[in-house]
Design a protein around this nucleic acid. Structure first.
Lengths: 365, 365
DNA sequence: ACTTAGCAGTCGTTAGCAGGGAGTGCTAGA
DNA sequence: TCTAGCACTCCCTGCTAACGACTGCTAAGT
């Protein structure tokens, strides 16, 4: 877990149990939990008064709150964090779930973007919350291959393949009409010559030896690669917004607004990515959090996937702070490993010229 | 307008005006409109009692309703349809709007899928509702070009370009290791030989002359093209869900559910597309409509774009039935013409082998 | 024939109030 | 350290009455 370890407060065994139960119950019912409920529903062998003392202590420590005097207790963000870091039973995703996911995942013959879309959908359905998956990318775009296809007249379709597998297509007007054979030959020549170059490298090429067409191709390529390097431009696949809408906290329209903004903008990719990159496993960002990412009543479970130092993407689940971390975290972890395996099988351990550390991704299935 | 002309009921001049005003007011306020409001806010030179008579007449004709006895009037679906077909001032999109859209649209150097995404976003923002844009496609997928790129070991990335500009990329394992030069030569050979063929044509090819690798490529190509032909598989770009959520009718969660289902599923593409294809211009589908497409409280303004009989896509706006058709319809029309222009400029009038009717798309800007 | 003023009647909405219930906090005792 | 009991707080529900926003109708005016 990546989140900074909060100082571990002095807590008795039973208080820990109580906190765990409050979190679990609140997660399920979304209503404040009373001492009586705890005793009766979970078969505690003490009286409700005792539990009330524990609840008071936990509130004193800032792990629980009170909406008002005569209401039950609700976990605070700190309470959730404590739960996640110390109290949660961090298990594997249940085998049946794993099988279900594998089953849905093993439709072969999909393209990368379909895989990612599917992953987001499967993840969203598994955890009953919104899921986001970003496309895997290299830190620095490098040229791999270009193909020019004549469409009609002077119009040419340029298909650009980058080393991280990104394909960009773009139409443009050739300075003069060109036959397909010539275009193919040119494509091949360029492809061999430019392999592995970055946008900066291409900028540095001398102009003299290049034909007008080559210059056009080069400029478009540079533009495309520069574009690809901008981190705000990561393609993201979102699914399961309807799960969010089903949650009771969504009756407030401000909450809806915030969630939609979080999902629609590229906030996620731009702002949360660095944090995830730094973390090693799954990291959790909660509500009104200290690091300045205001999520309101939402929590975000994030992980990166892919080949470390090479091709990496991120995936995450957005839901109410009150979400089932015991299910969500393993699900995100599992999905990340599946996607890592996918990236591995599509692109391999990485070419030496763009990936220095060939970490082994764990394979599943 | 494509919708079947309902029999024109006998209506006086003033009753028409009253209907227009009710629609306009209800669109703005989302609350039932009273006779008094009409007289006072719109400066009618008659008394509220007179208007009440007109309202009663319009209700008798089925164009308005009553939520309850002591409430104002609300337009029925039929009322909206009548408004749209006979009463609405069908203008151009205001020049300032056009300019704003053009401005946003003229970021050059985008790829098709970015264009479409952008279109959806711009349209959604223009009309303050959700917008959907589907990718333009040919009725029948035809092969144009293939490029095989060796990624690592036996893994090969196949980049397939179809005649409608669709690019499909897919990784697979080659039967034996291949050098890039061989792959390039093979790609070229195949590309020339298969140009213009359909999935069915490829199926019919004799197996004997093909190498194992060629057979693999062929099978993948057939699969990809078959996939591309399935109309439920149209890529769709959705934007502006947040606008919907801001609408007052969204307080009912059932309404939210329905809208999300409409947007998330590929219902739109699969079910509404044929209807749009048949229609010539912009068509409007309303709420609980006779044709069996249940939209509940939503209305849908749809149009196709692209080169008729060749490359066509659809775009539409989903919003509450109570939406500003006077703004939405011109916006959709305008956007359709922009996208038609875009398709035209990227793919031209179409090759004779897949487009018989080379209708001129109107160009803007 | 159309319009208007006036009025009765309907129905939703709101405010106010009382009662019940759920929970807590505290205290005294085991 | 736990427990039982009790007072207190506060929310929620249901009820009623008053209010207000409309309509629909009728009868008179133009």
């Amino acid at each position: 877990m990546s989140t900074a370890h909060t100082h571990l407060p002095q807590i008795t065994e039973r208080q820990a149990l109580v906190l765990r139960l409050v979190v679990r119950d609140y997660t399920r019912t979304a209503t404040p939990v009373s001492s009586k409920t705890l005793v009766e529903d979970y078969g505690l062998r003490v009286s409700s008064a005792t539990i009330r003392n524990d609840l008071a202590r936990l509130e004193e420590l800032g792990l629980l709150t009170h909406p008002h005097t005569s209401a039950g207790r609700v976990p605070t963000d700190a309470g959730y964090r404590y739960f996640i870091e110390h109290l949660m039973a961090e298990g594997q995703l249940p085998l049946t779930e794993q099988r279900r996911i594998n089953h849905q995942f093993h439709q072969l013959g999909l393209e990368l973007h379909q895989w990612l879309q599917l992953s987001a959908a499967v993840l969203a359905d598994t955890v009953h919350n919104a899921a986001v998956v970003t496309a895997p990318r290299a830190a620095q775009a490098r040229f791999k291959h270009v193909q020019l296809v004549s469409t009609y007249g002077n119009s040419v379709l340029m298909v650009l393949v980058l080393q991280d597998g990104t394909v960009r297509q773009q139409g443009f007007m050739s300075p003069q009409p060109m036959q397909q054979e010539k275009l193919t030959a040119l494509s091949e020549r360029i492809s061999v010559r430019w392999r592995g170059l970055t946008a900066a490298d291409l900028e540095g090429l001398p102009n003299e030896n290049l034909s007008a067409l080559e210059r056009a191709v080069r400029d478009l390529t540079i533009a495309a690669m520069t574009e690809a390097n901008r981190s705000s431009n990561v393609e993201a696949y979102r699914e399961g917004i309807r799960h969010l809408l089903a949650q009771p906290e969504f009756t407030e329209s401000s909450a809806i607004d915030r969630a939609m903004t979080l999902l629609e903008g590229d906030w996620l990719a731009a702002s949360a990515m660095p944090q995830v990159r730094a973390a090693d496993g799954v990291s959790v960002i909660l509500g009104r959090n200290p690091e300045g990412i205001g999520l309101g009543d939402y929590g975000l479970v994030l992980s990166q996937y892919g080949v470390k130092e090479g091709l990496v993407g991120a995936l995450g689940v957005l839901g109410p702070v009150r979400m089932q971390y015991e299910r969500v975290i393993p699900a995100v972890r599992y999905m990340a490993s599946l996607l890592s395996g996918l990236v591995w099988s599509m692109f391999g351990p990485g070419d030496t010229d763009w990936a220095t550390d060939q970490t082994q991704a764990d394979r599943e299935d």
